[in-house]
Nucleic acid binder design. Structure first.
Length: 598
DNA sequence: ATTAGGG
DNA sequence: CCCTAAT
């Protein structure tokens, strides 16, 4: 009897209707290889992030939880079946419930480059780089790298390059391809790894995701970040049009600037940059992304004797007013700063030049005219990083009035974790206690060690200050809202276990309940996620083990998936209502086991 | 806000 | 994971 039933079950299990149309990989192909100039910014953030990454909490917080197997003591689910609840808080339990925590404030004003971040005369972006697959990463070990070499610009013009890759070198490497800066997936991988202790980049999907990982660094999900964003937006950033749901005739790119569509918007934004970039012959054909970070400029001037040599040890950034409770952990503080920085960067930054404590705004002035010369004591020269007065990426052909979007309107899902993805659930909680109000005062000049040693050699064309203008070509659109794809967080076996069990008990049509039951405290798992995961689980269970990717899910679990799938498919339409299943527990378990409908 | 499905 | 449509 039992045997018979088992067979039925199997039959049912494998006989479910439509199996996902096509291999996911097929669909993924759509994901273009857009050149995320923004990645450079991301890389910056990523680097900074690494600094504090160590403090990030482990994502294995769920491990160690045990679940009752279906059919056993289901009544205890509230305690035992909620592996995702009450995670250990290594964040010091800075729950929101302690608003009175004393707080301290601090102002972050500059970040210094490592010591080895001395300017070197390294040919960073030589002809080959500009031409094609040139990779700048050779200079990855330099923190501030200013290359100088002959470059054949796209238009056939020969120009000297004064490539201030300082920023991107200091951070993940970037690639200079055809005048465009790209971030090798490798870089992403390194970053992604921080987020998940998983094998990003292992397969196609992974790669794709890891690629997006970057952008995720700039998502704004936490209240803190949102606050920051709001603050910044309202004060120093221009708001973004709410909906650009139209096509640009020239690029054919549909820019969708509205909540939860930023990835598209970003894409469009980025392309637009490229688009414009190509039409700026007066500028470097290398890169000058609007992000302002990927510095790249070409000077016509050959290296001269009276060049200016300088080294940049650090950049003064807009002051970031941070307020955190004393009980906050160092890690959370780091994260907070990271968030602030990310927000800052995401909005686009540019470099400011300060001479004698005075900000030089005229990019046309020559260095000498500005007072920057080899003779001058460069001690009075400083650079700053500041938020770019981001311009809304208004489609040139746009006739539609643009509606500014309220930063706070970002949906929860589009808003993402600031930077650390490994953060434990309470990270958000902690953040709630952090008051981070970045504000921009007059840029205070940062006088950093004028290089006196020959190591730091930065040829600066006396006549083309623009060569140093790392500022976006034309204050172009700065994607302000980069709500992008959430960071990928593969389900752990433990999670799968919990999910399977929950579905066994609740069925496949009550994701909300599943979420509440097994993932209530796993904030990053929405019921949609759970539903999606279940979908993939069913698919995974139906394909050969060889075709499966990622962390292998125990066959035992997959079997249960199919079993539950079959079971719930059968009783589809029936009393799938909550009331009907409320007390099925053990009996239903048996039913499922035997593959017989109840 | 949820659910269901396509992408 | 994202996005939408339909509830």
């Amino acid at each position: 009897m039992v045997f018979k039933r088992k067979l039925d079950c199997v039959s049912v299990a494998f006989d479910y209707p439509n199996i996902p149309k096509a291999p996911r990989s097929c669909r993924r192909k759509v994901l273009n290889k857009r050149t995320d100039a923004m990645d450079l910014l991301a890389s910056l953030a990523g680097k900074l992030l690494e600094e504090c990454e160590s403090s990030s909490a482990s994502s294995n917080a769920f491990e160690g939880n045990t679940h009752n197997h279906f059919g056993k003591e289901i009544k205890q689910e509230d305690h035992d079946n909620k592996p995702f609840k009450s995670k250990s808080s290594d964040q010091g339990n800075n729950s929101v419930s302690r608003p009175n925590t004393s707080e301290k404030t601090c102002v972050v004003n500059s970040f210094s480059f490592p010591d080895d971040g001395v300017l070197e005369r390294t040919p960073v972006c030589e002809t080959k780089n500009v031409k094609s697959e040139g990779i700048i990463e050779e200079a990855h070990d330099v923190n501030v790298d200013i290359g100088f070499g002959e470059v054949e610009a796209t238009g056939g013009l020969v120009a000297d390059t004064c490539n201030l890759t300082a920023l991107d070198v200091q951070f993940p490497k970037s690639v200079c391809v055809d005048g465009e800066l790209k971030s090798p997936s490798r870089v992403n991988g390194s970053l992604a790894r921080q987020g998940n202790h998983t094998n990003l980049g292992r397969d196609d999907d992974e790669k794709l995701y890891s690629y997006h990982k970057f952008s995720n660094k700039f998502k704004y999900r936490s209240p803190t970040v949102r606050r920051i964003r709001k603050s910044l937006s309202s004060k120093y950033w221009k708001q973004v049009p709410k909906d650009f749901g139209h096509y640009r005739a020239d690029t054919g790119i549909k820019a969708l600037y509205r909540k939860r569509k930023s990835s598209y918007g970003y894409n469009a934004w980025q392309r637009e940059n490229i688009y414009k970039r190509r039409r700026s012959p007066d500028r470097s054909s290398v890169v000058t992304s609007d992000g302002g970070l990927s510095s790249g400029s070409i000077s016509k001037l050959p290296e001269k004797r009276d060049s200016v040599k300088l080294s940049i040890k650090s950049f003064r950034i807009p002051e970031l007013f941070i307020e955190v409770p004393e009980t906050a952990t160092v890690g959370s503080l780091k994260r907070t700063v990271m968030e602030a920085v990310s927000v800052l960067l995401s909005g686009g930054i540019r470099v400011g030049v300060v001479v004698h404590g005075k900000k030089v705004r005229d990019d046309k002035k020559t260095l000498s005219q500005t007072g920057i010369s080899c003779e001058e004591n460069l001690t009075n020269l400083g650079f700053t990083l500041e938020p770019c007065p981001s311009k809304v990426p208004l489609p040139l052909c746009s006739e539609d009035p643009v509606i500014p979007i309220e930063p706070t309107n970002l949906s929860e899902r589009s808003a993402a974790q600031p930077t650390l993805d490994t953060e434990t659930p309470q990270a958000d909680v902690v953040e709630n206690n952090l008051e981070l109000v970045p504000y921009q005062k007059e840029m205070i000049p940062v006088v950093e060690q004028p290089s006196t040693d020959s190591k730091a050699l930065v040829p600066v064309p006396p006549l083309e200050v623009d060569a140093l203008a790392i500022v976006p070509l034309n204050q172009k659109p700065k994607r302000t809202e980069l709500a992008q794809r959430r960071t990928r967080r593969p389900f752990s076996v433990t999670e799968v276990e919990a999910l399977v069990q929950a579905v066994e008990e609740l069925g496949t049509g009550r994701w909300r309940d599943v979420k509440l039951r097994a993932f209530e405290d796993a904030d990053h798992r929405t019921y949609v996620d759970l539903k999606d995961k279940w979908k993939t689980l069913v698919h995974t269970a139906s394909i050969s083990p060889q075709q499966r990717r990622g962390e292998p899910v125990p066959q035992e679990l997959l079997d249960r998936v199919l079993r539950a799938y079959g079971y719930w498919s059968q009783r589809q339409g029936k009393h799938q209502g909550r009331g009907a299943n409320k007390d099925l527990d053990v009996n239903r378990g048996r039913a499922i086991e035997s593959g017989v409908s109840v």
